[in-house]
Amino acid sequence: MPAADGTVADGAGRPEPNHGLRIFLLWLPVALVADLLIWFVWGPHLPPGAMSTSAATQQSAIKIMSVMAAPVMALVLVYGAYALVVWRHREGDDEDGPPIHGNTRVSVTWIGVTSVIVLSLAVFGTVELAGPAGAGAGEGNTPIWRPSGGTPLQVQVIGQQWRWTYRYPQFGGFETTSLMLPVGENVQFNITSLDVIHSFWAYQLGVKADANPDINNVAYTKPEHTGQVQVRCAELCGLWHADMTTVGQVVSLSAFNAWTATARTQLAALTKELPPYTLTYDPNAVAQLGKVFQKAGLSGAGGGFYGSQYPVQP
């Protein structure tokens, strides 16, 4: 057996090096440096930032998982690189490798370590989910993780093809196309849709919840800094899905109060026409439909897909 660079043992030559130790020594600095970089350099800038409690939770979750993933990834890569360099086939060596069919100790260790990592991740994820009131994710209509304290600010998010509107039930129930939130207050988003499934994604707030027709989906957050919030739709909802964006604002409490007072007066005429505030809206239940029908030829309320069988059709 030729020993080109001395790393491969031959019968009379140098002893087989301790490959395990070598790989460990190569891996250790790589993993350490990667983890330190992730924690101290990259971590504070990881998306989605720390503008709200839920965004901060997500940021820390991504950071901690990166810190756990980096050594694992480094181990596989360092091992792979070492193997490809050291255990590559040498010209003229036509013998097969050593017949190792397996190693129970190695397998059991591997399974044990991965199980521990995975289970701790699951526990960690659950704790993070429960901690800051659902971590900004949609929790359905009966949320089990709620913020402590009094009733949060209620903001209803209504998705429709292809725009978001917002209702503020605690301020007379006016409806507007702009999203305005006060800093430092708990916010409860009640998210619903009038037609198909959308997904309300307030990027900087770390809030994402599907807007389902006829279903109220609740998400909590608490903005901690003022600034702009990009709102997008994260579920393909038809032709103009990509354009279903708005820019929201997180402002001081006094500015928010001033805004609601103004909006309430300005939109008073419109608010009178709106249906009473509810958590979901039947897309085709149109008040005074018969009256509309009598006044002018009705063409296609609700599409008439189900014809006269539709319960709310005239």
């Binding site: 490959h19 596989v76 091992y79 792979g80 193997a83 490809l84 255990w87 590559r88 086939h89 040498r90 060596d93 013998e95 097969d96 490798g97 050593p98 190792i100 397996g102 190693n103 190695v106 397998s107 591997w110 399974i111 991965t114 199980s115 995975v118 289970l119 991740l121 699951a122 994820g125 659950t126 989910l129």
Partner: peptide, 30 residues
């Protein structure tokens, strides 16, 4: 939390393919 757990559990058997590959590389003639 349950589906989070099952999803993370599935990475254990998926990880076996890396165990198998790394074990096969050990002192191989690649």
């Amino acid at each position: 939390p349950v589906f989070m757990l099952t999803t993370e559990l599935i990475s254990i058997p998926t990880g076996f393919i890396f165990l198998v590959a790394m074990g096969t590389f050990w002192k191989a003639k690649i």
